[in-house]
């Protein structure tokens, strides 16, 4: 094996190269803060960020837990609400024409703008956050599910009809299964949005969650703490994303090659 192909193809390289890239970026960042003598409240060094985290790890992890809970709850709720809406849209042209513009409108509203309103309507508890997450991530779920349901190849539909399958059989044995890979595409888009949604919601009317931590540390110019919270959010977002990727691999082994 030549050196070149080792770099491109070996599994070790597949794991090592991203790590090297990340480490390089952090090193550059660190170097910049030292070389240019940047003040910590403008751009903290990686070391400052780690120290800031180590100062109060249990507090930050608790707030991370709060954010995870809101994100996951809102995300699951979006599936529970979004998938049936998608199924109804696919089932009837009438409903599609009736509901689709509404969905577009709701999706077009800048979510940051309604965060304070959600607090007015639902108080200071968990609900405004969960609903915000629901609002940001249900649209990709609806669209991808609807697209998936419509993508069933006509010859497979005819096959099931020629076998005298009932509508329920057609739905569960064919359409839903066929829609799954596209649904997962939507879910992966939605989970990243869900994390953003929870942060937006936590900027307003609450004293919990990583969004609140960032908001507070901004107000007190505690930039290292903000960076620590942002890092935790990024990790959270990546982990949730890869949980979905893993689920997809386990549930849809057929979808990787055949599409």
């Amino acid at each position: 094996m030549t050196k070149r192909s080792w770099l491109k193809d070996s599994p070790a390289a597949a794991v090592l190269l991203p790590i090297i890239g990340l480490a390089g970026a952090i090193a550059l960042w660190w170097l910049a803060t030292i070389v240019f003598g940047i003040e910590s409240y403008l751009l903290p060094s990686p070391r400052d960020v780690v120290i800031s985290f180590m100062d109060q790890p249990s507090y930050l992890l608790t707030e991370t837990g709060t954010s995870i809970l809101e994100t996951v709850e809102g995300f699951l709720l979006a599936i529970v609400v979004g998938v049936p809406i998608a199924l109804l849209i696919v089932r009837s042209v009438l409903l599609e024409r009736l509901v689709y513009p509404l969905l577009l409108m709701v999706n077009a509203i800048p979510k940051v703008a309604i965060a304070p309103l959600l607090v007015v309507w639902m108080g200071f508890g968990q609900w405004p956050k969960v609903v915000m997450v629901l609002l940001v991530c249900f649209f990709p779920i609806v669209i991808s599910t609807a697209q998936g349901m419509k993508s069933t190849p006509i010859e497979l539909v005819e096959l099931l009809r020629s076998l005298n399958a009932s509508r329920t059989q057609e739905f569960f044995k064919l359409r839903l299964r066929y829609a799954m890979p596209q649904m997962f595409t939507g879910l992966k888009v939605a989970i990243s949005l869900a994390v953003i949604g929870s942060v937006i919601a936590e900027f307003v009317g609450t004293t919990h969650g990583l969004g609140y931590v960032i908001y507070q540390s901004g107000a007190s110019a505690d930039t290292p703490l903000a960076f620590a919270a942002i890092t935790l959010l990024s990790i959270l977002s990546i982990v949730l994303f890869y949980i979905l990727v893993l689920l997809e691999h386990l549930l849809l082994p057929w979808a990787q090659e055949s599409r």
């Binding site: 005819e158 076998l163 299964r177």
Partner: peptide, 28 residues
């Protein structure tokens, strides 16, 4: 039930094994 239809394309369900595809009519 006693009339079968075969299409221009194989029309196999991509998530089912060969055997399970052949058994589909019985399952229905």
């Amino acid at each position: 039930r006693d009339v079968s239809f075969m299409f221009q394309r194989p029309a196999l369900l991509p998530w089912r094994s060969v055997l399970s595809n052949v058994m589909l009519p019985i399952e229905i």
